[in-house]
Amino acid sequence: MTEVSDVDVIAYVDGCLEGSARAAFEERLRSDPALAERVAAHRWMTSQIVSAFGPPPGDEIDPALVARLGLAGENVVPFAPPQGRTRRPLLALLISGAIAASLLVGVFVGRSFDSQPTPWLRSGPEAKILADGALSQGLSGNLAGQAGTVRIGMSFHTAQGVCRTFSTGSGSTGSGLSGMGCRQGSDWVVPIVVTGAAAGSGGDYRLAAGEVAPAVMAEVDRRIVGDPLGAAEEQALRQKGWKN
């Protein structure tokens, strides 16, 4: 038998083989286990790629976006950068067409890239993952059930100290995080965290507000000692800096 081309395998996986070509492919598929394996591998890889990038933006268009894009009317609308961030210097330079081939500019741009904070997590000693920035503040300051960018699901005791489940808004990353932070000294160690995309099976999955991913719940079950803390116990612990 001749080898079936990758082009045909991919077209079949994408549902783009039609009519007689499709019928012939499926006929061959029934008698060729190696081909069936290639199809299965590509199907799986395709689904992984789609989930890796998270859900695409929806079709609803905010009037603010229309205005920002200068499409709202006859009046000239100034191009304000989208809320909460400024254009990266490189982009600004690109737009003005003023890039000079100078190492100085390059170093400047590189620094500004490097200094962009990772919003939620940083790496700590012994390959531990630590909560950072808003997540760290949210874990220390927010009470369970409060609305906010970092929502706390519940707090509970473990053999190693207090832990709290959290979920973050999807923000501009397109998929929020769901995980657990455990107090260790003045840090919040994050023993488990999953992205919205990782938590679900399909590419269009997104964690709902306050939802805790199943993998995180399983980790809570493994570690919890006693019952989840009530509001009063939570507040008392917060005052003591989450030390037992």
Binding site: G179, V194, A215, V216
Partner: peptide
């Protein structure tokens, strides 16, 4: 190797994005 499964999921997805 020693990270919890959930993190590996997130790391795996980041790795796939990087490969693309």
């Amino acid at each position: 190797g020693a990270i919890a499964d959930g993190v590996i999921d997130a790391v795996e997805l980041a790795r796939i994005r990087a490969m693309v």
